[in-house]
Amino acid sequence: MDHTSTLEKLIRGVLITLVVIFFMFPIVWIFLMSFQTNESILRIPPSVVFTPTVENYVALVTGQMKTAAGSLQLNFMQNLWNSVLLSSASVVIALILGVPAAYAFARFKFRLGEDIAFTLLSFRFAPPLLVLLPLSLYFKTLGLTNTYVGLIWVYQLICLPLILWIVRGYFEDLSPDIEHAHRIAGYSWFQTFRKISIPLALPGIAAAGLLAFIFAWNNFVFALVLASADKQPVTVGALAFVTASGIQYGQIAAAIIFSIVPTFVLAMFAQRYLVEGLSLGAVKG
């Protein structure tokens, strides 16, 4: 029937509130922590009433961290820049390689095609450490350890399968008749790919790109093993806050807020595409 009772509405409201609190609480708490000193964070019982301070942010930006045991050098801003560089470069390269490959897997049946596609996906199942041990040896020999190139290369293990499999689905949902119509209208294969296939799969490509960016951004273990301080992203750099004189919760919180910002901005920007993309994929053209 098409009407809901007041009780139903009430229960629904309560449940939604619970879910929102559950998911939002950590973020709100971190946000509050980033404006507190370590002392006020660690006070018992905890309280939401405190005198806000920006000293955590100042410490991150200036690279001077004052602890009880004295002053420490930080290169958080370098870490942040590394994250931005590594993630965006990895996604761009994965898109350049992955989108045409996804198209090939979607449109053409070739020998071992399915096996290759599956092998690429299987990189996602393997525990990263399994890959890392031999890789770190190779990288040492090749001189790729602690280089951006080396890291971006390894990041393809994260980005490429994601982009390949998501975008492939979008290409498969495009009616081949539309491409055929464009060919018959007098355009070459490549023109059709550029003018028809790519624009029509764009929402999917945007969604896949964003997801790949988030996964790359959040990666920890690859950079931990294969990079040293000056090439490390924020995820690894955050370890520096665990100091001899204790864990700097305030600065960790500020660092987290800083590191959320790029992905957040990107997600906001791509949201339009994401929603459109996720719903477009469900409807067969």
Binding site: S175, D177, I178, H180, A181, H182, R183, I184, A185, G186, Y187, S188, W189, I196, P199, L200, G285
Partner: peptide
């Protein structure tokens, strides 16, 4: 001869218009 050079016009059952 590639499809674009055959001098053929085609109308499809599902129309296959370019949506954009």
């Amino acid at each position: 001869i590639a499809p674009e050079h055959r001098g053929v016009g085609m109308a499809f059952q599902n129309f296959a218009l370019f949506p954009h």
